[in-house]
Design a binder for these strands. Structure first.
Lengths: 342, 342
DNA sequence: CCGCTTCTTGGAAGCGCTCCCATAGCATGG
DNA sequence: CCATGCTATGGGAGCGCTTCCAAGAAGCGG
């Protein structure tokens, strides 16, 4: 420590080597894993490092290794509200934890479309990161196309809208989710089941709707009570109102996200429909809010943590095997969580 | 583009210079602002850059400039639940937006105490970032001490528990917040006012409690109905229950955070106390949940976005002026938001 | 027409590191 | 006892960039 202070700037490998009485090359080897280094040299270097408080300069290292040991976590979302979505928050957290555990630095990129997106692409193709994880709400965008073309190791969380066959991704089986949530309603005897669907330009919206359709078809029921929301609480409330107006005889409702379901429950309460007595409701996601609605929501759990972990693992694989393998995908099944709304 | 593909790896400044018919030095000057470069050379370089799709190698640049143009966003929080706290989410978002606008890269550091904290400090003192913004829940920790000692440009969001006089920070005036929230209750005529306080080892917890005490003292009322929670919804509910048991005659309640207030409202509803009729309630923060409680909460708004912007500005100042000025602090006043609970 | 300043330019050093290569040391086997 | 192989080591090149410095070009007043 004292030496470090005395020398002015921060210590370099050269100073470490000199203090340890070895060459710079040996010091470097000792610091990086220490193959082909005698125990004596190893120890001398370790000691010098400790005494100087030496930290390798990552820029210098990266210049020659052509690796930066940092990866981007890309959130291609325009809206700041969406960012406080628990989906992002938890994904961010898990991904960061997993990658940090492998000594990778996580660089957070939040990019609105348009100008920001250009800058983000410029950044990604600059030599600053070794790979990327894209946390997406699967809204229609062209990011996947660009990344696929770039050849940068990357993994999407949430199947991308385009280029889904050219990049690796992890996702939830949203068709199964929609089907499962609808089956719960069928099993408890509902016969007039509507759905508040998500936006048609987002995969989860489309897929959960498809799941609902399949379940209805399997039960031989007509699938005509559909209104689209936009995954916000307000839209869930108004979509539910529209649905009740058009189909007053509804006895079951699958809402494509818990947040929308919360809105729908408010509408139902306001109209005096008792849940689940008069009308049973199921949601999708189970990210916290489902426990706090009144009544607590029966919903399909979106396995975020496992997905995020798997995404990190896939990226790590791509990073060490520099060979460009075929893109891989892992799809998780949502699990039913029974509460009181159905 | 074609040239870039032909040359194999990504283009270097050398290739740009050659294509533009100038020296590497001139090319470098042209790219970095272009002082002391003729218009002709400027244009030739710009053209070459475009044709090659050149991006400067940041590692090489940073090696010589000793700047990395990236800053850390430090979240010293152990608990993943806390991370999905809207306070962090919104702060993160705003800070990232502000710094990105100045072409700074944001590196996200989430560090649990203990081992992780050591690694984080190692990272901060490695030469990877130019500065740091620490988003803290002000829990007692020693991060500020270390950063102050390090001499790295940094700004805290939320006054640090220690070393508050040695680092720059922005914060909300939580004493004023507690006082304001309590005064609302006093003004509507409440006389037996209790408080669900935050943890005593966090500044906002302590300060809001102090604000409540001050307001009570000013009104000449006894300030004895205090129970501490831990800023979770559950703790708010049970603290409220304890308070009601000990002081059945309560007619007003200041809860030190909206999330705890939501729990308190549940308890009150369960016990048949009508809000605000039987007992008026005020919260603190106004981060979204306050609108959705039943009834919607009257609360003190924590001006997160302005705070985050100011923090970014302070950091940018510190970055340009390399002279180590005295630490600066900016304190924001919370604003009353009237809804239905008081 | 000369000496001066001002503007532009290229050569070259060097940021801190890794890694190739040559060399030296040493044990082993024929 | 020498050829052989193996391991540990240091020299040195070079990653891509910025910037100091000196030199050339150009403009201008005397």
């Amino acid at each position: 420590m004292d030496e470090a202070v005395a020398s002015g700037g921060s210590p370099t490998l050269d100073e470490v080597a000199r203090l340890a009485g070895v060459s710079r090359a040996t010091a470097s080897r000792a610091i990086n894993g220490g193959s082909r280094v005698s125990a004596r040299a190893q120890e001398a270097v370790a000691d010098a490092v400790r005494r100087l408080g030496y930290t390798p300069n990552p820029a210098a290292r990266s210049l020659v290794t052509r690796r930066t040991d940092s990866v981007a976590l890309v959130v291609p979302e325009p809206d700041e509200r969406v960012f406080s979505d628990p989906f992002f928050a938890r994904t961010l957290h898990v991904v960061t934890r997993e990658l940090s555990a492998h000594d990778l630095q996580v660089v957070l990129l939040i990019a609105s479309p348009g100008e920001q997106e250009q800058r983000m692409l410029r950044y990604l193709r600059g030599h600053q990161i070794d790979g990327a994880i894209v946390v997406s709400h699967h809204r229609r965008d062209s990011l996947a196309d660009h990344l696929a073309a770039l050849g940068l190791p990357c993994v999407f969380i949430g199947r991308p809208w385009t280029s889904a066959d050219r990049v690796s991704y992890v996702d939830t089986d949203n068709v199964a989710g929609g089907r499962g949530a609808t089956r719960v309603l069928l099993e408890r005897g509902c016969r007039r089941i509507g759905t508040v669907a998500g936006p048609a330009d987002m995969s989860p919206g489309r897929d959960r709707l498809e799941g609902w359709r399949q379940a209805m078809a399997e039960a031989g029921l007509e699938a005509d009570a559909v209104v689209h929301g936009d995954f916000t609480e307000e839209s869930g409330g108004s979509a539910c109102a529209a649905l009740l107006d058009a189909h007053p005889d509804l006895d079951g409702l699958f809402v494509a996200s818990d947040l929308m379901a919360a809105g729908a429950l408010r509408t139902l309460a306001a109209r005096g429909r008792r849940v689940p007595h008069d009308l049973a409701v199921t949601g999708h996601d189970d990210l916290g809010i489902a426990e706090r609605t009144d009544p607590p929501l029966t919903t399909m759990r979106n396995p975020i943590a496992p997905m995020a972990e798997e995404a990190a693992r896939l990226l790590l694989d791509q990073l060490d095997s520099s060979d460009r393998r075929a893109p891989r995908r892992v799809v998780f099944s949502p699990a039913l969580v029974r509460r009181d709304s159905a």
